[in-house]
């Protein structure tokens, strides 16, 4: 039975993408290796470093999260403590009108899971030997276009991102694997769901050891910000302002997550994990 399942997994090969594709795209390897690097902070001129890490190729799906909740009733809607998830936790409905997690149709299982809090997302990642990505890791991967690792300054790409962010949303989210695969082989970073990061709570603290940094001033315009001088800043502001509005127990219709993991010193993806 186990052998059969691994055989079936091996048959799931990624299909070529052409920008935003319709329907389901199956992705075989769950995580992408991201080499160490640095990038210019989207909100200013700081240079930020990231160490090598791995990140899920696409957000966690309804089906995966359902399996997690089934194994750990602390994260069921009945069992969860209100301090860890608000009253909208997992409240999304399937097309049948039932709670999505319990009675999802097969195609619904491939949608990104939403209405999960930061605590819930962390618990899921931990249960799989992973963690949430940090904001710097996430931004580092997300700056890649299809062809380039660093599309900083590519105004055509940034205009596409802005368009993805502002498309009219239907209540039914598309399946994962529907928004282009970037240079690192990572899908769905722009325009599917916003994603939790591990350190969302401290992104407003600057590198200058001061509380309420310039980023904070820029997020609340009337406090005298300028600086959004091109569309790249625009899309960054949308992401950062969205993160600034979060609290850890909050859930959101357009808020999901994916997991990450620090790289082994050898950089090897292969891990034997027994729990």
């Amino acid at each position: 039975m186990i052998v059969l399942r691994f055989l079936l997994i091996g048959l799931l090969i990624p299909l070529p993408s052409a920008g935003q594709a319709e329907g389901t795209r199956s992705v075989s390897t769950p995580m992408a290796e991201i080499p160490a690097g640095h990038f210019v902070a989207p909100y200013g001129s700081d240079t930020l470093e990231v160490a090598a890490f791995e990140i899920d190729r696409r957000p966690v799906t309804v089906g995966e999260y359902r399996g997690f909740v089934a194994r750990d009733p602390r994260w069921s809607t009945e069992g969860v403590k209100r301090i860890f998830a608000d009253e909208n936790y997992l409240s999304r409905r399937a097309s049948t009108g039932d709670p999505l997690l319990a009675r999802a149709q097969p195609d619904e299982l491939l949608r990104p899971v939403t209405e999960v809090s930061w605590f819930a997302a962390r618990a899921f990642c931990e249960a799989h030997g992973k963690r949430l990505p940090t904001v710097n890791e996430w931004e580092f991967v997300a700056q890649a276009s299809r062809e380039r690792a660093n599309a900083h300054g590519d105004s055509g790409f940034n205009r596409e991102i802005l368009r993805l962010y502002t498309l009219p949303r239907s209540p039914e989210l598309p399946s994962v694997g529907s928004i282009f695969e970037n240079y690192y082989g990572v899908w769905d970073l722009h325009g599917l769901v916003w994603e939790w990061v591990e350190d969302f709570n401290s992104i407003l603290l600057s590198g200058a050891s001061r509380v309420d940094s310039g980023l904070d001033r820029q997020l609340f315009c009337a406090a005298g910000s300028q600086g959004a001088t091109d569309v790249e800043d625009y899309v960054a502001f949308m992401r950062y302002s969205q993160r600034a509005s979060l609290t850890a127990s909050r859930t959101g219709r357009n808020l999901g997550f994916r997991c990450a993991r620090s790289s082994l010193p050898s950089g090897s993806l292969a891990r034997a994990e027994a729990k």
Binding site: N88, L219, F220, C221, A222, A223, Q242, A244, S245, L246, R250, T251, G252, R253, N254
Partner: peptide, 20 residues
């Protein structure tokens, strides 16, 4: 930000509201 407000940001920072 209401222009009728006398106060910081016309209320902008105090009223920063996430979805839901």
């Amino acid at each position: 930000d209401l222009h009728a407000v006398t106060g910081p940001g016309g209320g902008a920072k105090a009223s920063f509201t996430g979805p839901g």
